[in-house]
């Protein structure tokens, strides 16, 4: 187990390096001068040179990369060009809000998706199974930002039950688990939960159907389909894979929240990313993406290790 974990970590390190290289390259594939948004249009060549030196853009690429990486390792992702504030603190602030949203969405999605998949797997080819697989297809085919708009139209505009935008009275920095804040969370979280719901339902359905076909269970089923032994066996065997899928989905949501956050003006990383794009704030863009991608890589690592701890057969891969 320890060896597996170490090997898995060793495998992750080059991936992380590659990810940071891609993030570093983002600034350099962007057209035009990276300083264009802070330079006055009539800036002298001298001033330009000075700023280039301050931001380190006058050095060779490998040198810039190493300098950037070593600073990033110490938690310094540079300063936002638009606001001048440190990127790290801006991102960390936003990550908290995104996590609240993504974790809530994952829990909702997993609960309902798991339930649906479970029932569908138990009663295969019944109407509930067909409904579940239809919902799964809808779940992966629906443009979630549009679904967000539709929910706003129904529940905010028409019914007035929930607010359409924002994160509550505390603004972007102060979240608390009271109703004033929670009612802001409902619509974005439900919208977001649709993404993992379909995938979780599909996975759990396949797992359950597969387990029920095993000979051992066929014997147990003689006692009745809803016998406690059967249920326990199915849950025990389906859980590791289902949890792994849940973990990975959380990662996707963290990275994919930008569109939903934009719809609901939720002050998370996606919203930050949107700002960075429009103000052409490249350090902010770079830092946000780096943090999100690292989250995703580490989450993958954790999911792998936890899953193989639950199911040692997987350690052979």
């Amino acid at each position: 187990m320890l060896i597996f974990t170490l090997r898995r970590i060793a495998y992750t390190i080059p991936i992380m390096l590659g990810v940071s290289l891609v993030c570093f390259a983002l600034v350099h594939i962007s057209p035009g001068d990276p300083l264009v948004s802070i330079l006055p249009p009539d800036a002298s060549v001298d001033l330009q040179q000075q700023l280039m030196a301050i931001y380190g853009f006058d050095r060779s690429y490998p040198e810039q990369f190493i300098r950037w990486l070593s600073r990033a390792l110490q938690g310094d992702l540079g300063n936002s060009i638009a606001t001048g504030r440190p990127v790290t603190s801006e991102v960390m602030n936003a990550v908290g809000n995104t996590l609240i949203l993504a974790v809530t969405a994952t829990i909702i999605g997993f609960t309902f998706g798991g339930l649906f998949g479970f029932v569908a797997g138990f009663f295969r080819d019944s109407w509930i199974d067909k409904l579940a697989s239809t919902l799964a297809v809808v779940g992966v085919s629906v443009p979630h930002y549009w679904l967000g708009m539709v929910l706003v139209i129904v529940f905010s505009v028409e019914l007035g039950w929930f607010p359409a935008t924002g994160a509550g009275p505390g603004g972007s920095s102060q979240w608390s688990w009271d109703w004033d804040h929670l009612r802001h969370l409902v619509l974005p979280a439900v919208t977001m939960s649709v993404i993992p719901m379909g995938i979780v339902a599909r996975t759990v359905r396949a797992l359950v159907a597969d387990i029920l076909q095993q000979e051992f269970v066929t014997g147990l089923r003689a006692k009745g389909l809803l016998d406690r032994g059967v249920l326990a066996h199915v849950i025990k065997n389906a859980a590791p894979t289902a949890l792994a899928v849940m973990g990975l989905q959380l990662g996707y949501l963290l990275g994919g929240s930008i569109l939903i956050e934009t719809v609901f003006s939720w002050p998370g990383t996606g919203f930050l990313l949107g700002q960075a794009i429009f103000q052409r704030d490249l350090p902010l863009l770079q830092g946000t993406i780096l943090v999100l991608a690292m989250f995703f890589v580490i989450l993958n690592l954790v999911v792998d290790v936890v899953q193989s701890a639950l199911d040692p057969r997987l350690q052979r891969g």
Binding site: I15, V22, S30, L254, G255, I258, L285
Partner: peptide, 24 residues
Amino acid sequence: MRVLDVFYAFPSVLLAIAISGALG
């Protein structure tokens, strides 16, 4: 395959937005 793994380490939405955000 290891090079591809690096791109796999980004959720697809994030990668698409990152690249087109940088390119404009």
